[in-house]
Amino acid sequence: MAAASKNNLADLINIALEKLVEANLEIPRFSTLDAMTSTARGQVNEEILAGIRDRMTEEERRRVLGLPDVIELDRKTLFNALKQNPGRATWSHFKRLKGHLEWVDGLGDTGKWLEQVASTKVVDFADEAEAQDAATLKEYTDDKRMALTACLAAKARMRARDDLATMLCKRMAAKAKKAREELAEIHRQQQKIVEALIGNYRTLLQQVDKEGPAQSARARAVALTKEALDALEGLGEELSAAEVTGRLDGRVSPAFLLLAEGLMVQSNGLDSLLSAVDKLGGFEAQYAQIEKVSTHHGDNWEVLLPSVP
């Protein structure tokens, strides 16, 4: 039946007219249609009101019926508090919103009360209740007062939950924005470190490149090492210091052998470094990669601008 989901009398009359036309029946006078739809709506609403009442406990009925009673010195009622919005959905109103929702929840389980009641009916009943004040609401029957107040409580609960959800979403969005800004700052700091490391790596490559000072030192070390080894040819660690001195006519210390070996180790160490660079693509490839990264050093975006002909 349409009256179970619609409460506006004009809507019900229009539906009745459509049904009469579809069935090829004679359309009665408007006053007759008005009376019929009004009676049907009243019967359906009475069933809805009774169902809401029966799904309430005795304590819940007492609590709901007592909302229009004056309890404050300023002559305000809890029914008035139920109609009012506790405040904007801002963090400063969090406690007020939370307290309001807890109070509305404390009235009872509106979801249970309004089981099997069409959402359109709930909206219409809530709007009717919201249009009343405490005095006019008391003129209704107890069943209607309870039903209208139950629908208004459901609306107030939904509004409070929506406001809290909106507030929390805004709060989380602000936190997320701050976190992104902090992460961006970390990236900027890390970029500075990366750029410094790249600069250091460039300097290191320049030191060990074929024209760098390390290569010159290496060549000199190789020559000196060869000269030392030639001079020490035939000598070994098993010889005593006296024998070494005798073989070299007292020109060098026995420690010279260790020095020569150290120079050879140093030369071999540089060779291993050069080998590592070669495995990475060689000096030219490394310089090309460094240049590619360094192009945008310090967030340099000007190089991305198209050239003007």
Rank of each mutant, 00 (worst) to 15 (best):
N300W: 04
M1L: 12
E261H: 07
A214N: 12
M264I: 07
V122P: 05
A10N: 12
Q190Y: 05
M36Q: 13
L101W: 06
A16Q: 08
M167P: 03
E181C: 03
K210N: 15
A276H: 08
L152Y: 04
L248G: 01
L258D: 13
A179Y: 02
L97C: 05
L280K: 09
E139H: 15
G66E: 14
V303A: 07
I71R: 15
Q289R: 15
D34H: 15
N24E: 13
G282T: 03
Y287R: 09
E130F: 07
V222C: 10
M36H: 11
T32D: 13
A214I: 10
A217E: 06
E291L: 08
N200W: 09
L33T: 00
V104R: 04
I290D: 03
N8V: 01
T136Y: 11
D11R: 03
G51F: 00
L12I: 00
E237W: 12
L97D: 02
E22Q: 13
S240N: 06
L232C: 03
L12Y: 05
L304W: 09
L270V: 01
A165C: 11
I48H: 00
L280C: 12
E72Y: 15
R63K: 14
E233T: 04
F125G: 04
K144E: 07
E243T: 06
N85T: 10
L152P: 06
K175D: 15
G298F: 00
Q189H: 13
D74R: 04
E233P: 01
K210I: 06
R157A: 05
T90G: 01
M172T: 06
A184D: 07
F256V: 07
R171A: 08
A214E: 05
D109S: 03
A228L: 15
L258C: 09
K210F: 15
K292F: 08
A40Y: 12
T166W: 11
N300K: 09
F79E: 02
N24F: 10
T245G: 07
A150Q: 03
P213F: 06
A89Q: 04
L168E: 14
P28R: 01
D162A: 14
T57Y: 00
E211D: 14
R41L: 10
A16R: 14
R247D: 03
F283A: 04
A150G: 03
L65R: 05
V21K: 09
L82D: 01
E243Q: 11
G199Y: 06
D209F: 00
A126V: 02
L204R: 01
D143C: 06
A89F: 04
R251I: 03
V308R: 11
G111V: 02
V64D: 04
R247Y: 11
H297F: 12
S253H: 10
R161D: 08
L9C: 04
